[in-house]
């Protein structure tokens, strides 16, 4: 415990204070707006200079983030995953909900460029961050990205259900490693399960998209 906390009051009363206060949101990087949200203190020991810890939820709280290049403002409960926000509220159903436990990769999106299982992070945690989904890869006119085209060219899918997540993992891989060899591709898609077994074709598609392996 840092020395500046030696005057702290009993933590039990602190905790009770924290739990009984009105939920609100302030100055933590989470976008605050919402008229009608009463300010309040989540925690303050009397006579102490201890931090007031904002507590919000369980009801909806306003958040703001960048989604496929555009700013999104939306209200979500703290218990909402990014995947459920994307699919159920923002109508972006490309990211798939399969295992909902981070095991299968079908929900993969990019957060600040990195591949992330959107089922296993909370929507409030992408506040202020850049999220890209499979819908953000093609152009506004619907023209496929080179990676998407490579998946088509190499038949890198059969049923297609894993494909949005698989493509997003490959996209994140190529942004970090523009010329991955086969072991690097395998490591990059180690979190994506394809039960049709099209891994071989995925390797070829990534090689085409990265300018290796000579196209179809």
């Amino acid at each position: 415990m840092p020395a500046d906390r030696d005057d702290s009051p009993g933590r039990e009363s602190n905790q009770n204070a924290a739990i009984s206060r009105r939920s609100f949101l302030k100055g933590t990087g989470l976008a605050v707006a919402a008229a009608g949200v009463a300010p309040g203190r989540a925690l303050a020991g009397p006579g102490s200079d201890q931090e007031e810890v904002p507590v919000f939820g369980p009801g909806p709280v306003p958040i703001r983030f960048e989604l496929n290049g555009e700013e999104v403002r939306v209200e979500v409960e703290p218990a909402t995953t990014l995947l459920d926000l994307l699919r159920d509220r923002l109508d972006l159903t490309g990211s798939k909900r399969v295992c909902d436990r981070g095991s299968c990769g079908a929900c993969t999106v990019q957060v600040n460029g990195r591949a992330v299982a959107s089922c296993s992070i909370l929507a409030v945690d992408v506040t202020g961050q850049k999220v890209r989904t499979i819908e953000g890869l093609s152009s506004a006119e619907g023209e496929l990205s080179p990676l998407q085209q490579a998946f088509v060219d190499h038949d890198a899918l059969q049923c297609g259900f894993c494909t949005p997540g698989m493509v997003m993992s490959c996209q994140a891989l190529l942004e970090r490693n523009p010329k991955p060899d086969r072991p690097a591709i395998a490591a990059g898609i180690a979190g994506n399960i394809c039960r049709c077994g099209t891994y071989q074709n995925v390797f070829e598609a990534v090689e085409q998209a990265s300018g290796q392996g000579g196209g179809k």
Binding site: I19, G57, P78
Partner: peptide, 13 residues
């Protein structure tokens, strides 16, 4: 299941 979220800025908090 729903839950509240506390957002401390310090370890003490």
């Amino acid at each position: 299941r729903s839950f509240k979220m506390a957002q401390p800025r310090s370890l003490a908090g």
